[in-house]
Write a protein that binds this DNA or RNA. Structure first.
Lengths: 345, 345
DNA sequence: CTGAAAGCGCTTACAG
DNA sequence: CTGAAAGCGCTTACAG
């Protein structure tokens, strides 16, 4: 691109050194604020020259020399899912606090070229890569390893790998289902996440545990898998409500699907919460503006992003990591849950 | 971080050259697929060596030599705003198609350190920067210029600068208001965007134009500024509805605020669309799942992201750019708009 | 068609 | 406290 040309006249460390009448090693030390002692007077001269010339250090040269970039990558499946917004914000704050920049990419725009994208990131653009949510194939994982890029799975566990940070999805599900049980529900269905999703697996697990703890044997017919999208939730809920013995409550694995669930209930001429109670995982800003305002389980998504960044940057990339962020999981009771209806429909 | 050490044993172009029994210049030419002719036999040998050794080129070295990075940056105010998800996806696709990677950052996690963040990006991490939406201060702009980083404003116009791509927000507003006028509304209020936002300004402009074209003089009391958030929409709509002569229709500048607008109407005991019609800008997936399903104006957000990337990469960064993406703007009629109520409230 | 050499802009032991 | 030199891994005119 034409831009490259424009940078030809760039100010380098040598220009600064010449102007300040010192060696460029001195300039480097001043710029990097090394512990090495430099005469205050000399430092001032260098600083002045830097200001006068508008010097900026060149990351490429620095990276080449130090074999590090000062950047952390975060790869997510889709920017449209607001859950990631929270994770990103947490990671961004943590990265900046440690003097790194965070660079986010997704496979949404990359399509089937995710591997190429990861490869490009691995060519030394980042010092490490956080892989959130989406499916990473073994081939992709190998690519990263071959490139020597440290990585860490975020919000999902790997098949054969043990480098991940997750939330306590199991407990979140138990909190949600526990709330429904407390209200007196016994026939509780689950709009689960997609079959492949690790978060979905753990939430389903928690759902079953909570039921069993209350002496209720989980029924397979009361679980319907759905994408983490409104459309997915709509279909799954429609199917569950059309069954012979419909549930009185739905535990939904994700806010996005809950949006579709509410529509499905309404379209069947039923009311939330009078006929059906609904509770979902993740307390996004949106939840309180749905109709009715949605009861949710708040998960520490920002902490997850922050902790992941921390672990990526501060642990040996060759050692296993399997951490569950234990920050509080809160039940946020709004209008979508109530006692079950008296008479059987 | 420990990772850097691990990369010490990295395979370089010299290793490949030695293995293939050629000069490293040859390896470079093969890797970069230069038009230079190389004997097929030699090429094969090099390719084999690359595979055997698992060679990956080092971007830092390449960047230093060529003064370009193969990366484009996109800076947005907040990942939580789904409007940006569409822009990002468009930009990502366009960047990848041109052999670049897109790296997204936001000021949400950066807080007041946006300038530091931009500076870090400008240290030669990207070949150009797309600045979407958020406020970029003159100081920040100067920083980028001083660093010689080409930039382009996306979805907003700058104060003194003319390097931007925007959508036709003016026309979007006219489409929305025109729809309300066609339905017979005469008293149409506007839940506008935040005072500083350029998109807000242009939508307000379109709103006024549409009214005037219908022979209606716009009233300042019928316009209320709001953040592009549910909470902002809630407050603005509440104020508008509390006035002595309330409107029969609301043109809302943004889907996020429309969510709050619907809540506000409901809390006043009014019904959408029987008492109040609501139409909003941006047709996000969410819109059809609101209650009632929201009538919207669909804007070509992906095209905007794609076109911005194209312009950034393919035009001279020292020349002005002021483009309006002219892709179709569509009215998507759902359940939130209807004819005005017969009798005056 | 291939090779040898210079040099991109830094950082960092090492020597003074 | 400061300086001179080597070298990180590439690409690219230039020469053969």
């Amino acid at each position: 691109m034409p831009a490259a040309t424009g940078r030809g006249g760039r100010v380098t460390i040598s220009d600064v050194a010449a102007r300040a009448g010192v060696d460029k090693a001195i300039v480097s030390r001043v710029v990097n604020d090394k512990a090495v002692s430099i005469r205050p007077e000399t430092r001032e001269r260098v600083l002045l020259a830097i200001r006068e010339l508008g010097y900026r250090r060149n990351m490429a040269a620095r990276s080449l020399r130090t074999a590090s970039t000062g950047a952390v990558g975060l790869f997510i499946p889709d920017f449209a899912n607001p859950v990631y917004a929270e994770i990103i914000t947490g990671a961004e704050t943590a990265a900046l606090a440690r003097g790194y920049v965070l660079m986010v990419g997704s496979s949404a725009g990359a399509g089937h070229r995710t591997k190429d994208y990861l490869e490009a990131l691995g060519e030394g653009r980042v010092d490490g890569l956080l892989l959130a949510g989406g499916p990473i194939s073994p081939a992709e994982q190998q690519t990263l390893d071959a490139q020597g890029v440290p990585w860490l799975l975020v919000n999902r566990r790997g098949r054969s790998t043990t480098r991940h940070v997750v939330l306590d999805d199991d407990r979140a599900a138990q909190v949600a289902v526990g709330h429904l049980l407390d209200l007196g529900h016994r026939r509780i269905a689950h709009v689960a996440g997609p079959a492949g999703a690790d978060t979905a697996r753990r939430r389903r697990e928690g759902y079953r545990k909570a039921l069993r703890a209350a002496g209720i044997e989980p029924e397979a017919s009361l679980v319907a898998a759905a994408d983490y999208t409104p459309a997915g939730g709509f279909e799954a809920a429609s199917a569950l409500l059309a069954s012979g013995r419909p549930p009185t409550a739905l535990f939904v694995a994700n806010v996005a699907s809950a949006i579709g669930v509410l529509t499905a209930v309404r379209e069947r001429g039923l009311s939330v919460p009078d006929d059906i109670s609904v509770v979902a995982v993740h307390d996004l800003p949106l939840a309180e503006h749905l109709v009715p305002a949605l009861t949710t389980v708040r998960m520490p998504l920002r902490s997850l992003g922050a902790r992941a960044t921390e672990l990526l940057l501060e642990t040996d990339p060759r050692r296993p990591v399997a951490e569950v962020v234990r920050d509080p999981i809160d039940l946020v009771i709004r209008r979508s849950t109530a006692r079950p209806p008296r008479r059987r429909r």
